[in-house]
Design a protein around this nucleic acid. Structure first.
Length: 428
RNA sequence: GGAGAGUUGGCCGAGUGGUCGAAGGCGCACGCUUGGAAAGCGUGUAUACCUCAAAAGGGUAUCAAGGGUUCGAAUCCCUUACUCUCCGCCA
């Protein structure tokens, strides 16, 4: 969430940012509301602090008077302090209310988009940041979409997944399962080679954790919730991994912190339907390797580029055609300041599939998380967080099947063969 | 799941109603000392918010979390969480 002081000092910038996110004039009122509530909060605290000061000083006197044996005098002061009590309680309640009201307002305000974020409403308006310059693969008339290929080669089974869990929970088997595992290991090894420390985090997280990275309250309905224990199934490894550094004060020399992790990701995807969700295009559970960096604010955009390069190299090694989009204001996530999406071309479906999202959150997450660093003058500042998928498996898997299908079987890209230990997925 | 013990600052650890944001030690930083280092000596060393144009200064809160008793709570009471030990269950 944004800091009140930041909003006050950069009001125009914040308002413009919200406009890029297509806020109406009416909705922009929230900014003035925040400022007003904060003024009330401050004046309440000033009043309360003065009252508490009085109470504390008088109470100290009582102690001293008792020691000196002056009971009567002490009792007089006791009565006086007793009278303050009601007012203290009222003010304390008010302060609590105001603080809460402020927090609730701030929770509704999304991050300020980076200056490069274009306007626009939907994913149609995203800017093609890097197009695919070479020819797109073309397949024969008889080419199959991945869900058909899965049947032909027995790679995954949606019906069985449905039987066991429900729609959108794929079950991989045989060479399909092996290909999944190969991709996971490949991505993790590549991340390790790029200097990321591997983490295996919990797959369920508590409310504080989900709130810190901004999934709550914004994406409440998108996460699976184990109500009995009040835990959320992670929608991405970003959540538990970034939270490692919640409430931490770093030294400048600690930067950059680079973490990676493979986890399944669980998403309810409420409201999704239609042809675009066929097969593995949109599922409730998929595997993803996430890369996370915690950076010095001066370097975070440089680091964002480095992360883009990492994802590019993965796709190049997998020999998949891809393009990079810069998300427009309307498509940009609530917590992100700047996001680049990677899409791979699915030749059989003749469409682009999103396989990675690389974002800079600046201080939006670190403010909630209280993740700070200390500069040379011992001043504390909020750090920047970044993360990206490197990569999300289900759609990569789909694209690999479709693009590499031949009449003899499905070719495995060279870089992956060391992991799969087969070069071709053949009909049984 | 049951029983018991515990949770204090970066770490260890003292502290059972007032002068305690908290002794002492370790660590860390700076200075003195030294040819240099170690040792020694000295000084400093939490976070957030409010106030102040800013700094200085002042104030408030925080001893796991929340609530209560009291003029006053690290200290007493209640609730919750977590940790450890034992039992149960179990990969």
């Amino acid at each position: 969430m944004l800091q009140v002081n930041f909003i006050k000092e950069n009001k125009e910038r914040v308002l413009n940012g919200l406009k890029i996110r297509n806020y109406s004039e009416d909705q922009l009122g929230v900014i003035d509301e925040v400022i007003a509530v904060d003024e009330l909060r401050k004046s309440t605290q000033t009043e309360l602090d003065a009252l508490l000061f009085e109470r504390n000083s008088l109470s100290k006197e009582v102690g001293a008077l008792y020691k000196a044996g002056k009971r009567d005098e002490a009792d007089g002061i006791k009565a006086k302090v007793g009278q303050l009590k009601e007012k203290v309680e009222t003010l304390q309640q008010q302060l609590k209310d105001k603080t809460e009201a402020l927090a609730n307002l701030l929770y509704t305000i999304p991050n300020v988009p980076h200056e490069s974020v274009p306007g626009g409403n939907t994913d149609e308006d995203n800017e093609v940041f890097q197009a695919w310059e070479k020819d797109l693969p073309t397949l024969t008339e008889t080419a199959l979409p991945h869900w058909e290929l899965a049947k032909k080669y027995d790679l995954f089974d949606l019906e069985l997944g449905n039987k066991i869990a429900g729609a959108g929970f794929p079950l991989y088997r045989g060479q399909g399962a092996k290909l999944q595992r190969a991709l996971i290991n490949f991505f993790l090894d590549e991340a390790a080679a790029a200097g990321y420390e591997e983490i295996i985090p919990p797959l369920l997280v508590n409310e504080t954790t989900a709130r810190a990275t901004g999934q709550l309250p914004d994406k409440e309905g998108q996460m699976y919730h184990a109500e009995k224990d009040d835990l959320y199934l992670i929608p991405t490894a970003e959540v538990p991994i970034t939270n490692i550094y919640r409430d931490v004060i770093l030294k400048e020399s600690d930067f950059p912190i680079k973490l990676t992790g493979h986890t399944p990701c669980f998403r309810r995807e409420a409201g999704s339907y239609g042809a675009h969700v066929r097969g593995l295009n949109r599922v409730h559970q998929f595997d993803k390797i996430e890369i996370v960096q915690i950076e010095h604010p001066d370097k975070s955009y440089e680091t964002l580029n480095v992360m883009l390069e990492h994802v590019k190299s993965l796709l190049n090694k997998l020999e998949l055609p891809y393009r990079i989009l810069r998300l427009c204001g309307g498509d940009l996530g609530f917590t992100a300041a700047l996001t680049f999406d990677f899409e791979v071309y699915s030749a059989a479906q003749k469409r682009w599939l999103e396989v990675s999202s690389v974002s800079n959150f600046e201080t939006f997450q670190t403010h909630r998380m209280k993740l700070r660093y200390e500069d040379a003058n011992n001043k504390k500042h909020l750090a920047h967080t970044l993360n990206g998928s490197a990569l999300a498996l289900a759609r990569i898997f789909a694209a690999l099947l479709e693009n590499n299908q031949t009449e003899h079987g499905i070719k495995i890209p060279k870089a992956l063969q060391a992991y799969t230990r087969f070069e071709l997925i053949r009909n049984k």
